[in-house]
Design a protein around this nucleic acid. Structure first.
Lengths: 327, 327
DNA sequence: GTGAAAGCGCTAACAC
DNA sequence: GTGTTAGCGCTTTCAC
């Protein structure tokens, strides 16, 4: 049994292959009655178009590449889902790449999939701008959570929410805050740090900066020691994972959150809700992040020039912040 | 600037395209010196093979499909990573599909990607066997964590580890255990339930069965009520996510774990380590699961007939089990 | 060990 | 509206 192609259908119907092809890719160019015959026969024969062939002819693969630095970080699965869902709307599939936080893997993998996809959604907080730009020239790409001149991006600005959190802590009596910084050279880390610094500057509040640290649970645990030493009564963790690690580290040292110290995370990943008490954090708009990225990518692929989109996180007050402890 | 193909290289070197092609796909058929020239020139020109063209010619896409039911469940990211890593060894890319726990999406998405991949790694705990088998005929497929007659699979048997856990609880004085069941019709859920029942039967221990429940945090929270009502002093949750939910639910009701009740999870996902106290659980061999699945798939694709692989979970005793509370 | 040529299944001018 | 034709970039006989 040989496989069914547009020719099988064309022969069966006594029409040309082009018409069959058009019935699928440009249905408006085919007479309705013919189109329906084609579709019916296709159904009957179990035909489904060969993407590779279409790809060869059109130069399009119908596949989008999604690069994430660490799929095991709970930030990414919801985003992956959103990207996939949005891609389905454009009839595209998603090739996933997890670079395992390695820059060399990132470049290798990117090089490998580049020719196989129509475009790329890239989450690469740390690859130097020049190398990032080099990897991305010549292929439609949208960068997530990082602003790179000349590249369309969709970013989440947490400034307002973080400053609200700071305000909240201030209202609870905290006057010495810690900023537990995320990865060195991470765009988001810098962004978040800036928000806190900016809020602190005009106020009668001490700010101590700790880190940089990796965006990992264990790094948070380590940071807990620095936090205790710093004398800050409340801390902004770079993200929820670090916040969770910091809380565990404080527990190791006999401290309770929020009784002894307050902790604020960022991103509102699953973990933040499943902790007890729930983590006070800033929610990331995963779904919109993914959706905008894909929509923008689609625009790029079809020749348009999308402009950068900025979304906003929102403060979620839960159980890990409380009134300052009486010293 | 036109794209570089085997012809660009062939022209530049004054040789034929066939030779260039062979230098990549059948290097043994090309004289070493020529091969090296080709590779060097390819490097210089930034050539990378067009998969679509290769796919058209060979019928292979170089892409593997990976279907997971819920990428936001922390069980899957490490497995996705393992699958991707293993695929790289076979020079294949991974097309990810998250069915969002919907059977209809699962079938739709599968139908869509089937023609675009060389084979499938499927994690589908609940799709009825007949429909699963129907979706998978005609395409090399490996099923993960589910035994389906006639389909090669790689499964994780947690019987021994769960029974060790039961033994451990027994040693701590627990005589009334709860089995908090996972999703109805889930192969793993049935498997785990069987292990506990089998251990209980010959012993002077009461077993109460709760559920079935969805494998979700919130379902665990709900289950906590049933658990309290059941009077069991210790419980086996279907998985870690449920276990975390149950602990949160118990806290809501003023109970502490393990002081008031002991909880055992399953899978040892990130969450299990980040909780305080750490969750006693049974570790899943994520990396091996992914690796074996891909290796088996590769065998299938190349015409061999792999046999089912059984891996084993191991008990990880952490902080959520303790001596039975004095009533 | 290497080249010439056909063809994988589809699309896209171009003609009719 | 539909058919004809010429590729897309690669692999793979088949000669040499």
């Amino acid at each position: 049994m040989r496989r069914v192609t547009i020719y099988s259908i064309a022969d069966a119907l006594g029409i040309s292959a082009s018409t069959v092809s058009r019935a699928f890719s440009r249905p408006d160019l085919v007479k309705a009655s013919v189109r329906e015959e084609v579709l019916a026969k296709a159904q009957e024969l179990g035909y489904s178009p060969n993407r590779a062939a279409r790809g060869l002819a059109t130069g399009r693969t119908g596949v989008l590449g999604l690069l994430v630095p660490d799929i095991t970080n709970p930030f990414f699965p919801p985003m992956v889902r959103a990207v996939q869902r949005a891609s389905a709307h454009h009839d595209a599939e998603v090739l996933l790449i997890d670079s395992e936080r390695s820059e060399t893997m990132e470049e290798d993998l990117l090089r490998r999939i580049r020719p196989q996809v129509d475009g790329l959604v890239i989450v690469s907080p740390r690859l130097p701008t020049s190398r990032l730009r080099a990897m991305l020239t010549g292929i439609p790409s949208v960068v997530v959570n990082r602003a790179v001149r000349g590249l369309p991006s969709v970013v989440c600005d947490n400034t307002r929410a973080l400053q609200q959190a700071a305000e909240h802590l201030h209202g609870l009596g905290h006057r010495r805050l810690a900023l537990v910084r995320g990865p060195r050279r991470s765009w988001a880390a810098e962004q978040r740090a800036k928000a806190i610094r900016e809020w602190t500057r005009p106020r009668e509040v001490d700010l101590v900066e700790l880190g940089p640290f990796e965006a990992q649970f264990e790094a948070g645990r380590t940071a807990a020691g620095d936090l205790v030493d710093s004398g800050a009564t409340a801390a902004f963790a770079f993200d929820d994972l670090m916040a969770a690690g910091m809380i565990a580290g404080l527990n190791d040292r006999g401290e309770q959150v929020p009784a002894d110290r307050s902790i604020v995370g960022c991103d509102d990943v699953l973990l933040a809700r499943t902790m007890t008490p729930g983590l006070t954090t800033v929610s990331a708009p995963f779904v919109d992040l993914g959706r905008h990225a894909v929509d923008m990518l689609h625009l790029l692929i079809t020749g348009a020039k999308p402009s950068t989109v900025t979304l906003h996180g929102e403060l979620e007050v839960r159980g890990t912040v409380g009134a300052v402890r009486r010293q």
